[in-house]
Write a protein that binds this DNA or RNA. Structure first.
Length: 581
RNA sequence: CGGGGAGUGGCUCAGUGGUAGAGCGCUCGCUUGGGGUGCGAGAGGUCGCGGGUUCAAUUCCCGCCUUCCCGACCA
């Protein structure tokens, strides 16, 4: 493709609203343009990469036994009522009406549609299992779209669904797709991690998120050199070493008028947040629960919900707080907390006082005093209070110890590019998607679902592959293989003719090139080539031709490339094709 | 949903109660020719939309729309 005739509007400066490296570079390199908040146009160059990703995904899904289908983006309300999601999904579900005022939604995902399709035409255990997948535009009306194409409202996704007559079959399929996903992300050249994720309200045996490691990722994952990796929503933290007993100082109440947050009190008392015991109130199925955390730690509500085995966990409203602690919000503490109970407004007494393991390590700490405008210093667990139990309740941080091997874990940020999920009968049961077994018995099918954010994969590739000059594409995703740059001084026809020969050679080697044939100065061409980031660059100029050579270098190499004799070019191209350069 | 920015040419932005500018980009010419060359001449804007104040509004006021950021757990 000749650049002079190709639609690649590169920009020297990125629009103001490009909030990440990938968004910035995708816009500057002419891959995408924004039409509205979270809605993007894909230009020719961007689409080429999107299609490359799509093809890799397609090949691996087919290899795993998948069958590609095409499902509607406009989906009838009735199906969503069947699963209850019409009311549950919330504002993210974009609802629309047709001219007859029949209600539809724009697909955010396709469980309802595919389950409907399967229940209609698959009846026998002998037809199972099936793995169906599609590529399609999805729309989720995000509260706050950002990070360019990473968190867009409209995006391109591969979604796959499998249906089974047994758990074993479903597990087997899950393993197969898991393997396919690994193949896909390896082929994309990603540094990624398949991490354990929380299965959320849906439950199920297992679920994995495929995270591309990148600083701009929205998710934090904790990982350890031993191989353990999990979303921090789920990551366990080993019990920290016990505090060494030192001189316990006497409990003292201090006047802290109007300051209640850990941060403010810490500043007021000139103490460090990690010396604080913060006191949180929750309602577990309506009963008040008190949670103690180290001041600088985050409570992980998912862990808490699991410990409490409750179905509804919510933060306690203010009146519950006051009824239990007997003071205003911001001044509660664990010392003699059960004696503070007033029972006002029909609030039940504390069901439990739970503390994170790290609270046990605090010596001479600070907490609320259960009195207005007072905090207590020199609080010591064991001496001044004893929680009902200690658990691992904190969100994992860097340095926390790995639950498997005890070594300090590290935290990396990751972009979720894929998610595999064992659904069970969550959709098949309410929608009566059933099969008949050998004994004429009906059972809901066991389902799995597996998604890959194709458009997000493109952005993730750039987050992982770039330098100050632009994109560095992994070879399998590059929109073209080679940046062919022709530079002519005063003999343009010769250079053009010779470059045409190189261009033809590239194609006969089974490679593609973006030939910068514009009448631009070399600097401009090199800058654009770096920005666009094709893996290889071949320069043909009067200077190189005079010696029967071209210049070759990889995108990652600095400065001039190495000279290659024209006669050796076919060999070089062969090596590029086979990836041995 | 709450708070705070912002909307002026394709992009980044300046500016003004008397209907507008710069840099980049674009067109043409000359120049230059291996990391965004220099010079000159041009094209291109109902200053987001609607209303109000005013002799006069892109500018001031009100409403709306769009967009970006922060927040919407942390005692």
């Amino acid at each position: 493709m000749k650049l002079s005739q190709y639609f690649v509007p590169t920009l020297r400066e990125a629009p103001q609203d490009a909030d990440t490296i990938s968004a910035n570079l995708m816009i500057r390199a002419g891959l995408i343009r924004k039409l509205a908040s979270g809605i993007y146009e894909w230009l020719p160059l961007g689409l080429r990469t999107l299609k490359k990703v799509e093809q890799i995904v397609r090949e691996e899904m087919d290899k795993a036994g998948g069958m590609e289908v095409w499902l509607p983006v406009i989906q009838p309300k009735e199906l969503w009522l069947e699963t209850g999601r019409w009311n549950v999904y919330g504002k993210e579900l974009l609802r629309i009406e047709d001219r007859k005022e029949t209600e539809f939604c724009f697909a955010p995902t396709a469980e309802e549609v595919i389950t409907n399709m399967v229940r209609r035409d698959i009846r026998s255990y002998r037809q199972l299992p099936v793995l169906l997948y599609q590529f399609g535009v999805k729309f989720r009306d995000e509260i706050r779209p950002r990070f360019g194409v990473i968190r867009a409202r409209e995006f391109y996704m591969k979604d796959a669904y499998s249906f089974h007559s047994s758990e074993e079959s479903a597990n087997e399929m899950y393993r197969r797709v898991y393997e396919a996903y690994n193949n896909i992300f390896k082929r994309c050249g990603f540094e990624y991690s398949a991490v354990e994720a929380d299965s959320g309200a849906i439950g199920g045996d297992f679920t994995h998120e495929f995270m591309v490691l990148a600083d701009t990722g929205e998710n934090a994952i904790a990982y350890c050199s031993c191989g353990y990796a999990a979303n921090t929503e789920k990551a366990e933290v080993a019990v920290p070493p016990a505090a060494t007993p030192t001189d316990f100082k006497p409990l003292t109440d201090l006047h802290t008028p109007g300051v209640s947050s850990v941060e403010d009190v810490a500043a007021f008392l000139k103490a460090k947040p990690h010396k604080f015991i913060k006191t949180l109130f929750y309602l577990a199925d309506g009963e008040p629960v008190l949670i103690l955390m180290r001041g600088d730690h985050q409570l992980n509500e998912i862990k808490l919900a699991k410990v409490l085995k409750c179905s509804v966990l919510e933060k306690a409203p203010e009146h519950v707080y006051e009824a239990v602690a007997g003071c205003a919000v911001g001044f509660a503490g664990p010392v003699k907390i059960r004696e503070q109970f007033t029972g006002a407004a029909g609030v039940k007494p504390l069901k439990a006082v739970l503390a994170d393991n790290y609270v046990k390590t605090i010596v001479n700490g600070v907490s609320g005093a259960n009195k207005a405008d007072k905090h207590t210093v020199n609080v010591n667990p064991g001496r001044d209070f004893e929680p009902d139990a200690y658990y691992d309740l904190k969100t994992a941080d860097a340095g926390d110890c790995c639950p498997k091997c005890g070594q300090p874990m590290k935290i990396k940020r990751g972009i979720e590019v894929g998610h595999t999920f064992k659904l069970g009968t969550k959709y098949s049961a309410p929608m009566k998607c059933e099969y008949l077994d050998e004994g004429q018995q009906s059972h809901p099918m066991i389902m799995g679902c597996y998604g890959i954010g194709v458009s997000r994969v493109v952005a993730a590739a750039i987050e992982q592959g770039h330098d100050k000059n632009g994109i560095i594409w992994p070879a399998p995703l590059a929109p073209f293989d080679i940046s062919l740059v022709s530079i002519s001084l005063d003999d343009t026809p010769t250079v053009t003719a010779e470059t045409q020969k190189v261009y033809d050679l590239i194609h006969s080697a089974g490679l593609t090139a973006l030939w910068d044939d514009r009448d631009e100065r070399p600097g401009v061409k090199f800058k654009d080539a770096d920005l666009i980031g094709l893996p290889y660059r071949i320069v043909v100029s009067s200077k190189t031709l005079a010696e029967g050579e071209v210049e070759f270098k990889k995108r990652t190499e600095e400065g001039f490339g190495k000279r290659v004799k024209l006669a050796d070019l076919p060999e070089l191209l062969k090596n590029i094709k086979s990836g041995t350069v």
